[in-house]
Design a protein around this nucleic acid. Structure first.
Lengths: 110, 110
DNA sequence: AAATATACATAAGACTATTATGTATCGGCC
DNA sequence: GGCCGATACATAATAGTCTTATGTATATTT
């Protein structure tokens, strides 16, 4: 059920970018929940993976963060850096192409 | 163009199994060529990745090998171990599901 | 004769995810 | 009132896979 784990490698970066692009702004915990609910509990992002990924993407300048206190708990919201939107689109497009190629190799019609 | 590289991680195992299942028996170099031609020169498997993968899969008992001398060059042919066909099908199915979930996250219709 | 394609193999290094651990607040339950 | 689960962040040690580089060897093309 959660054997998807081993496939995640390399795609997590782009998954995060795609979710942020769609949802405007999100925080780490929320991204994990979204991925989980959108994939029937199949893609389960762990904290040890998501937070380093967010830090990495911010360091690279693709996303920006801002802290907010909500209900007493601190949330760190991330959103796409507008000046990097082309690069983000490019990365999403590449992953999209890759899934297509994968499906061709697996003989999946669509 | 070959930025698919970073997405490959974790999926190579299953790609190899899928190709072997479709083509009966193949050798390492042939697998690389097949992946390349079937994906418009996008998925380029390197020798440093393919050979360790084949050795790993054989060690796990999912595939079996036999050496043949063809035109003066030695080829090591691999094929699915018939007694592991269920496990192979299962792994291919999991990757297939994963690509579906990925496409859902990327908002790709198909 | 030299370069390219074929065909295998392995080692060093980089990168990413898993697992484990730590901190802290909030809400529900008994 | 105290405990547990959910929320929310973070980091370190470890494992695993891929890239890059290197090596060997034969056949074909230029």
């Amino acid at each position: 059920m959660d054997s998807n784990k081993k496939f995640l490698n390399g795609t997590l970066n782009t998954i995060v970018l795609a979710l942020l692009k769609d949802n405007g702004k999100m925080y780490g915990y929320e991204i994990c929940q979204k991925a989980k609910t959108k994939t029937d509990n199949s893609i389960l992002l762990t904290e040890g993976a998501i937070y380093p990924t967010l830090h990495r993407l911010e360091k690279e300048g693709l996303i920006i963060s801002s802290k907010e206190k909500v209900n007493g708990r601190t949330r760190k919201y991330y959103s796409i850096n507008v000046s990097s939107i082309q690069e983000v689109n490019s990365q999403i497009h590449l992953l999209s192409q890759f899934t297509g190629h994968l499906r061709a190799l697996l003989n999946l019609s669509t």
